[in-house]
Lab assay of single mutants.
Amino acid sequence: NQASVVANQLIPINTALTLVMMRSEVVTPVGIPAEDIPRLVSMQVNRAVPLGTTLMPDMVRGYA
């Protein structure tokens, strides 16, 4: 089972991601792999991401 990136807090739209906003968790469906967390830092979300939501590739500008 692969860990995915999950929002550690509410992340408002257009917010640049920081390490404290994300955690890794084994979830279904699988989202962005946890090993990509360092790559996600400073990328912006293109929608509001509620606490506990799995980050999907289409939620992060420039990721996919």
Rank of each mutant, 00 (worst) to 15 (best):
V5F: 01
E35H: 11
I37N: 00
R39P: 03
E35D: 12
D36N: 07
L17S: 00
P29Y: 03
E25F: 04
L10F: 12
R61V: 15
Y63L: 14
A34L: 04
L40Y: 02
V27T: 11
V26I: 14
V26P: 15
G52S: 15
S4H: 02
A16R: 06
V60C: 03
E25P: 00
V20L: 14
P57Y: 06
P29E: 14
L10Q: 13
N8E: 13
M21S: 06
N46G: 10
G62S: 06
V5R: 01
M22D: 02
P29K: 05
T28A: 08
S42P: 02
Q2N: 12
A7G: 03
V6L: 12
V60P: 01
V30P: 11
M59A: 10
G52C: 07
A16T: 15
P33N: 12
V45H: 00
G52T: 03
E35N: 09
I32F: 03
L51H: 13
I13T: 12
D36V: 08
V20N: 13
V30L: 13
I32W: 02
V60Q: 00
G62R: 05
L55V: 07
T53S: 15
V20Y: 13
A48N: 10
Q44G: 04
Y63K: 04
V6C: 04
L40V: 08
N1E: 15
Q44W: 05
V5I: 15
D58Q: 07
V27G: 03
S4F: 03
E35A: 12
P38Y: 06
T15N: 05
P38D: 11
I13N: 14
G52R: 06
R61S: 11
V27C: 04
S24A: 15
V45S: 08
S42E: 06
E35Y: 09
V26D: 15
E35K: 06
I37P: 00
A48D: 14
M56D: 05
R39H: 08
E35V: 08
D36Y: 12
M43S: 06
R61F: 08
V49K: 00
I37Q: 04
M22L: 12
L55T: 01
P57V: 07
V41S: 04
V30T: 12
I37L: 13
M21R: 03
L10Y: 13
L19W: 09
A7N: 02
T18V: 11
L51S: 14
M22F: 07
E25R: 03
L10N: 13
T54E: 01
E25H: 06
A3E: 15
V41R: 07
S42H: 10
L55N: 01
V20M: 15
P57I: 07
T53R: 05
A7K: 01
Q44E: 09
Y63S: 05
L55H: 00
N46D: 13
S24K: 04
T15R: 06
V49T: 08
A64M: 14
M21W: 02
Q9R: 11
R61W: 11
T15W: 06
L19T: 12
M22T: 02
T54Y: 02
V5D: 01
S4E: 00
S42N: 15
P50T: 14
T28P: 02
R61I: 13
P12S: 12
T28K: 03
R39F: 15
N46V: 15
V49Y: 02
L55M: 15
D36T: 06
V60M: 04
L51I: 10
L10S: 15
V41H: 09
P29H: 09
A16F: 14
R61D: 10
S42V: 03
M56V: 13
P57H: 06
M22A: 00
M56I: 07
G52L: 05
L19R: 09
G62L: 07
G52I: 02
A64C: 07
L40F: 02
N1W: 07
P57Q: 07
T53P: 01
L10E: 14
V27N: 03
V6H: 02
T54R: 03
N46C: 07
V45L: 08
V60R: 00
P38L: 10
V45W: 00
P50D: 13
P38R: 06
A34G: 10
L19A: 11
I13W: 04
V45D: 01
A48R: 06
R47P: 02
E25V: 05
P12R: 11
V20T: 14
I32T: 02
D58E: 08
R47E: 14
N1K: 04
V49I: 13
D58W: 06
I37D: 00
N14M: 09
A7E: 01
S4Y: 04
Q44A: 10
P12Q: 12
L10P: 14
V60S: 01
D58Y: 05
D36I: 05
L17N: 00
I11D: 00
I32R: 00
N1T: 15
N1F: 14
M21H: 14
E35Q: 09
A16N: 08
A7I: 07
T18E: 12
A34E: 14
V41M: 07
A3D: 12
R47G: 10
M56T: 15
M21T: 03
T15L: 07
L17Q: 00
P33Y: 15
Q2E: 15
E35T: 09
A64H: 13
V60K: 02
L10C: 15
I13D: 13
L10A: 14
T18K: 06
V6A: 03
A64D: 07
M56Q: 11
V5Q: 01
Y63P: 05
M21C: 03
A16S: 15
Y63G: 05
V5L: 04
P12D: 14
M59F: 15
N14P: 00
A34T: 09
V41Q: 08
L40T: 01
M43E: 04
Q2S: 08
I32D: 00
S4V: 02
L17V: 04
Q9H: 12
Y63Q: 05
S4R: 02
I11W: 01
V6Q: 05
T53N: 08
Y63C: 03
N46S: 11
T15S: 10
M56K: 05
S4P: 00
A3Q: 05
Q2H: 08
T28E: 15
N46Q: 09
V26H: 08
A16L: 11
D58F: 08
S24H: 10
M59E: 03
A7F: 01
A16M: 10
R47N: 15
T54P: 07
S24W: 11
T18H: 06
P38A: 14
A16I: 09
L40R: 00
G52F: 07
G62N: 05
A3T: 08
A34D: 15
A3K: 04
S42G: 15
N1H: 06
G52M: 14
V49P: 02
R47C: 06
E25G: 07
L55D: 02
I11C: 03
N14I: 02
R61C: 15
Q9G: 04
L10W: 08
S24Q: 11
L19D: 05
M59L: 05
